[in-house]
Design a protein around this nucleic acid. Structure first.
Lengths: 201, 201
DNA sequence: GTGGTCGCATACACGATGTATGTCAACTCA
DNA sequence: TGAGTTGACATACATCGTGTATGCGACCAC
């Protein structure tokens, strides 16, 4: 499609607004981020913002969608690089923990996002990520690697554990050391889902 | 101590404000709860509020401290009623999941609280709860029930898994059924921490 | 009973969101 | 190609909510 000069510029301002919002939300938090500052930073006014995103919440949604897509792509790469499905599953969880070390992700995705937009498992992208996790657990249960556990429940618990670990690590004094402790415990817990007699990975 | 008429009345208004805030925060969320309404509901004005709690955040802290104390007392009861330390540990986690079915706890403790006050593991009461969990894991590791895992890491991951499970259950269409699925998966994951040869039950 | 303290109300300043309206450049079509 | 239309964005305003400074009145000490 021949995107005219018009549409092209428009996409540019959308991107600029989202970029500025990511910075502002990450640094000051959603509530304390003023839209006037945000927009002025990229040479616009709130008019542009309300035109493109409807309201402040809409801007946050756009920001979250972008970050979420990046996270999804990252964990998918880790999973694909693993030797076995089970190791892929572990790698995905551990990668998720590492990702959440980023202050931007913590503040926007883990703290403000849920408070403003509600339960993250209802977000479209998170749902996609979760669905792949569920599918993996299903496959691992089917081939006998995992005990007959409810796939969605297992995927969500693993996710929750990883998420909380990330918050802990981020708030700790020595993140790398804490990361190591968390990853070890995470691996053990996940191994609790393995079927009897399966090698512990 | 002879609490005079004065101090007595003051405690009463503090309690009334906290009560009203619990309702308002739970129903509308922290950001959307207006202090004017809150206080008018119990026949006061914002003056009382700022006098007692400093600012809106201070009120939220007081509310959270109260709820947190209730949760702590509840899980402690469950733990004490269990037959063995290991079963007590499980009961505590499962009890935590059940507690979080309460919409008030979800909204205030799991969504708005972290966004406004930051990482919950830094809250004084949560810290107390976590410390007892860590102590339990330490004891279970010492007596050989659990594998030699980092106590704090294990406690935090278990906590995170339970917390996320609660959010999931709450958002589900059939909470009781979802609760059953979550509890089963939770038990299995926790059992991953058991030492080799320990009975799973 | 008089001065002081303190719980709480009143009044105001400030900032932030959202909306209604205006404007000007870019595209359409005869 | 130029008049009309659309739409991206700016401007101006209405509204509301927090926080603070100030004031009042009841209780307590002496």
């Amino acid at each position: 499609m021949a995107t005219g000069r018009r549409a092209e510029k428009m996409e540019e301002t959308r991107a600029a607004l989202i970029r500025a919002a990511r910075r502002a939300f990450a640094e000051k938090g959603y509530a304390a981020a003023a839209m006037d500052e945000l927009t002025a930073e990229v040479g616009l006014t709130r008019g542009a913002l309300y035109h493109h995103f409807g309201d402040k919440k809409g801007l946050l949604q756009a920001v979250i969608a972008e970050i979420d897509a990046e996270m999804l792509a990252h964990t998918a790469r880790l999973r694909a690089a693993a030797a076995t499905p089970w190791l892929g599953f572990l790698a995905e969880g551990i990668g998720y923990i590492e990702l959440a070390l980023d202050p931007e992700i913590q503040r926007i995705m883990l703290l403000d996002g849920p408070a403003v937009l509600g339960d993250p498992s209802r977000w479209p992208n998170q749902n996609a990520c979760l669905r792949t996790s569920i599918a993996m657990v299903e496959a691992l249960v089917a081939d006998g690697t995992l005990a007959p556990v409810d796939p969605e429940a297992a995927a969500r618990l693993i996710n929750g554990a990883a998420l909380n670990a990330a918050l802990w690590i981020a708030a700790s004094d020595d993140p790398p050391a804490t990361l190591a402790r968390a990853v070890d415990a995470f691996r053990r817990m996940a191994e609790g889902l393995l079927a009897e007699g399966q090698p512990r990975g």
